[in-house]
Design a binder for these strands. Structure first.
Length: 453
RNA sequence: GCCGGGAUAGGGUAGUGGUUAUCCUGAGGGACUGUGGAUCCCUCGAGCUGGGUUCGAAUCCCGGUCCCGGCCCCA
């Protein structure tokens, strides 16, 4: 038995690797046209980086290990935390905003299934120092544009946490994490029952998350009016001013004691901001659905949040997620809001349609007696075109055969006759025709052929 | 972590408790040592793994590994 691949990992053969490379390049091209610059961070980090961001409970989903120096390390499970770590330690005094993008492999210790692997690739952006509607709209429009460059159509859902958190402010702190989780998990009837039980059905939360699109925004405006008309009747602190209370409740409610539920960031009710994001998206020509059900379950998100879903992916259909968040301060930096998103590269690759195909290299076929001269010619031609020459000791006929089965469009033939005449033979495989030409003429001809695409 | 389905040459497959395990494709060579993907010939290459039942297991049973679909989770 041969050695197998570790569970949840994949090998990429040349064809697949080329396809992935082209897809990456197409999206990279969009990023560069939008003025984003690539960054790269280590494949492994201190485990602490991820537990600070997401709580101790993430350890069970992470590839973590202790190195020979006794350090607790982890293979990165995502790239936002490393990028923000890098920003805090090295880029805080750079001009704002910093438009960054990244592409890299990440690792999670999970049960593999369709569209979910233990090693997977994420591509994403962060607009560091950007939290206004302007950068939110830019992030969403950019994600949309990147997917369009691959002819992938996704359904964009955009939500706003400022509103949801404000409504939650009217609910007793102990119930907030539960309510958030129920919204996230789409546990609608349980949520209805809970709101009924605690006498908060009148807040309009259920109606709000059920509505999508324009009517959701109208409902949101109505709720805002009601919230402002009726000042908080409860004496409960808002989640923003006293996260500890919510945290304690979260730990009680969620047996795993996830720290991430105890750190709701400041999130003001500023619906007009969200309205502007929406208007800007319209101006950018982005098609999307307003959906207050999008809460992303994470406490460091503050304003607009969004997710993109694709068809034909089974259970794992989310291909993009992002929003405005505050992480810099969590890693010891100055408070700096950012907007960013991550794209699930592997899931996108499952549905991407690309027609371009690779152009096979030119084959240099030679008779064994002129191998040395052939090698010199190959060296010269490779300066301008992709070219392969036989390494199998094959006869001329066998080389032609190999060239044909590899799909070569041109074969350059060199033998004693050619060397005597001071020319080479250029054979066009599809037509079965060939002509004698000098090396510079062949080089010229093939250069044109390869630049055609 | 849970439920279900799988695993036979590099890829795709057939079949059976019993002699030498199918077929297609592929790969290498040759017929053709200076001209093609066709044809013909030769060659290479397989029952995931460990245990059990049995005179005999690739086949039946159990564990493990890995894959596929779903659940949980998803920073």
């Amino acid at each position: 038995m041969t050695v197998q691949r570790p569970r949840g990992t994949r090998d990429f053969l040349p064809e697949e690797t080329e396809k992935r490379g082209r897809a990456k390049l197409a999206m990279q091209d969009v990023l560069e046209r939008w003025g984003y610059r690539e960054v790269a961070t280590p494949t492994f980090e201190h485990l602490e980086l991820f537990t600070i961001k997401s709580g101790e409970s993430v350890i069970e989903e992470i590839y973590s290990f202790t190195d020979k120096g006794g350090r607790a390390l982890a293979l990165r499970p995502e790239l936002t935390a490393p990028v923000m770590r890098m920003y805090v330690s090295e880029m805080q005094n750079f001009p704002k905003p910093q438009r960054l993008w990244y592409f890299g492999n990440c690792f999670r210790y999970e049960r593999p299934q369709r569209g979910r692997f233990r090693e997977f690739w994420q591509m994403g952006t962060e607009i560091i120092g950007g939290s206004r509607p302007d950068s939110e709209a830019e992030a969403i429009a950019l994600a949309d544009e990147m997917l369009k460059s691959l002819k992938v159509t996704g359904e964009i859902h955009v939500g706003y946490l400022g509103l949801i958190r404000s409504i939650l402010g009217r609910i007793e702190a102990q119930h907030r994490p539960t309510v958030m989780r129920m919204i996230d998990k789409k546990e609608r009837s349980a949520l209805a029952a809970l709101l009924e039980e605690i006498g908060q059905s009148h807040l309009g939360l259920l109606e709000l998350i059920d509505l999508k699109g324009k009517s959701a925004l109208d409902k949101a405006a109505q709720i805002v009016g009601e919230l402002e008309a009726a000042p908080s009747e409860t004496l409960n602190p808002s989640p923003a001013t006293e996260p500890a209370a919510a945290g304690a409740a979260a730990r009680q409610e969620d047996g795993r004691g996830s720290a991430r539920q105890g750190r709701a960031v400041v999130s003001e009710l500023r619906l007009e901001q969200f309205q502007e994001t929406v208007d800007l998206l319209d101006a950018f020509g982005v098609k999307f659905t307003i959906d207050f059900e999008i809460v992303r379950g994470l406490e460091y998100y503050s304003g607009t949040v969004f997710e993109i879903y694709a068809q034909g992916l089974g259970a794992q259909r989310q291909i993009c997620g992002g929003g405005t968040y505050e992480l810099a301060s969590l890693f010891g930096g100055k408070e700096t809001s950012s907007t960013g998103f991550g794209l699930g590269f592997d899931r996108i690759m499952e549905i991407v349609q690309m027609d371009e195909s690779r152009m096979p290299p030119v084959f240099l076929a030679f008779t064994p007696d002129v191998k040395m001269q052939a090698a010199k010619i190959a060296g010269s031609l490779r300066k301008s075109i992709p070219l392969v020459m036989d390494v199998m000791g094959r006869s001329l006929g066998a080389q032609l055969k190999a060239a044909a089965s590899a799909g070569a469009e041109y074969v350059v033939i060199v033998g004693k006759d050619e060397l005597d005449a001071g020319t080479l033979t250029l054979r066009e495989m599809a037509r079965g025709e060939q002509e004698s030409l000098a090396l510079p003429a062949i080089e010229q001809r093939l250069k044109i052929h390869f630049s055609g695409r």
